[in-house]
Design a protein around this nucleic acid. Sequence first.
RNA 1: GGCGGCGUAGCUCAGUUGGUCAGAGCAUGCGGUUCAUACCCGCAGUGUCGGUGGUUCGAAUCCACCCGCCGCUACCA
Length: 662
Amino acid sequence: MSSTGVESRAQAEPFYLTTAIDYTNGDPHFGHAYEKVTADAIARYQRLRGREVALVLGADEHSYNVARAAREAGLEPKAYCDRMAERFRATWDRLGITYTDFMQTSDPRHEAAVRTFVQRIYDNGHVYRSTYRGLYCRSCEAFYTERDLVDGRCPWHDEPVETVEEPNWFFRLSAFRDRLRQHLLDHPGFVEPESRRNEVLSLLQAGLEDLSISRAHQSWGVRVPWDESQVVYVWFDALITYVSAIGFGWDEARFRRLWPARLHLIGKDITRFHAVVWPAMLWAAGLALPEKVFVHGFWYCNGQRFSKSLGNVIDPHDLVAVYGRDGARHYLVAETPFGQDGNFTDESIRKRVTSDLANDLGNLLHRTTRMIERYRDGRVPDPGPGRAGETELARLAERVRDAYEAAMEELRLHDAVGEVMRLVRRANKAIDEWAPWALARDPAKAGELDRALYALAETLRLAALLLSPVLVDGSPEIWRQLGIAGEDPPPFRWEDAAWGRLAPGTAIRRGLPVYPRLDPATTRQLAPVRTQSGRPAEAAPAGGGAERPAAPADGAHVSYDDFARLDLRVGLVLAAEAVAGSEKLLRLRVKVGEEIRQIVAGIREQYRPEELPGRRVVVVANLAPRRIFGIESQGMLLAAEGGGRLALVVPERDVDDGSRVK
RNA sequence: GGCGGCGUAGCUCAGUUGGUCAGAGCAUGCGGUUCAUACCCGCAGUGUCGGUGGUUCGAAUCCACCCGCCGCUACCA
């Protein structure tokens, strides 16, 4: 698998990968950084393999939120976008992301590409005119879904929205269902991980609806070429970045060389657009499909979502400031299997960086260079003819290289790094076994000592090379300290990932530890554990007297505390109406103290809408809002069910609405 | 409710097609070493491999049912 045959073809083919393009109505955060770092590690690995790599990043700007943020900042949209794009690029530069292109959707080249693209699918007969119905806010000049609304009102203006119909252009997405399904069956690797692919398949099973791809009444966006009164729907616009960034519509030669992409890296929230809509778009435009859509996981923070209201967002710049560029990158790649969710904690990153980079890798370099200095006058000894490959370390190194290669090709980034760390740990152990300090005292063991020191230096050279896609600062530094001649920074090449390439006689240049241990006393906490109120948790009181022991929770009982988490309230039904198109659902407006909630309840078979207003009910007031039948339900009614009948639970005598139910 | 997935040492997880599969890393305890960044190395562990049945000479690994968790989806108490 390592170095023959198939290679020549692969090397000739460029490797084009993309990350999601980001909304730039706020600064880049941890999740953005994760995606870019993993993409960059893949890109650097492919370059290591000698392939031409295009790594595209970008900014998704034609959304209403961006236009609004611009207005709030007092800037023209384009000026605002350009400024934000700079902030994003600065962050990616800080993280060492080696992107080749950064496409803003407001870039004239992109806008031209979008027009070319949609014109093409129009000419190919995949677009038709129909009516779009949606909820429209006049102030925003934008449509919203039921899910976006807050209390049925515009999330930005707190104004009622109105149902508006407008003529739009529709894309025949449904026509591609069977073909897409077949493609997924024929190409198991088209969507990964497999669980995501299964989701897409079941989605297709459920059926597809055509997609409105234009909007009237909007000025911020790309004009539909054959209908200047409309702009292209923002998602359609955004996806086209993947081709516009590499020249579609403005540099055909480059586009033809790089397309189709080998990999789209995305988060799990946008799977549908990339695994369903995008392939259909490409087919409609007569273009080839990308080889793979890889869905990475989300990061949590102390088990909770990153969110501004919790105050636990992490600025990538802080991550770099505290843990270093390599520390941040290593943590992001090595901590969690690629494709799974991760959980950021200050403790986990400190441990990961300290044990892997400082204690294992950094210290191995330090002790190795120190011994070469001390025992061999600072020159890498000659292991002697034919002996270098005989040591266990040498054999392991080549096995690790092959396992690393397999892992990287399959995007098991975390396994790939883990393999190299295994080698590093084995080298540390080998030092103990060989005890070079003992060999040094016995002139008869000079050959053994030579071989030992050579093997250690060579292991470090290889480990640094294999880790170079992640440890972008440390890998070159390790080579520098090993005294490897050549360009600085070194052009890491896969051909050098073979045992024995380190030239005997090389003068090492020991330096300061590449990865100093973090000082726990001064390491800044990036994500202190917080209480639900958003305040940092109090430290446990000394003496421990005030600790409240958790009630035992056997299978049959919940603790009182668990029960107390429910906020049950008396509510007064103000209005009730049947949910159109539904048999069982009623949409209620319920007054609970000061607030009025919209609650969807499945009680229509037992209660007629007109008999409900004025009645008191019991409401679960702190239930997370859910969308039911397209309508947000902000709570739940308590009802008893039995004998096929449903009975609302009501207070036995009159109490004020808003009263607590215990 | 439907579909998919998961439940293995304190924690995070590996465990291809059933037979050294009961493991790794981290954390803990004890010991060793000195080349080293209070580092590294060794030893010790604990596990009813979610539960119950079944197939088999033999199952963490296959089947059934049950419990719990997660994802997508759904006319949701």
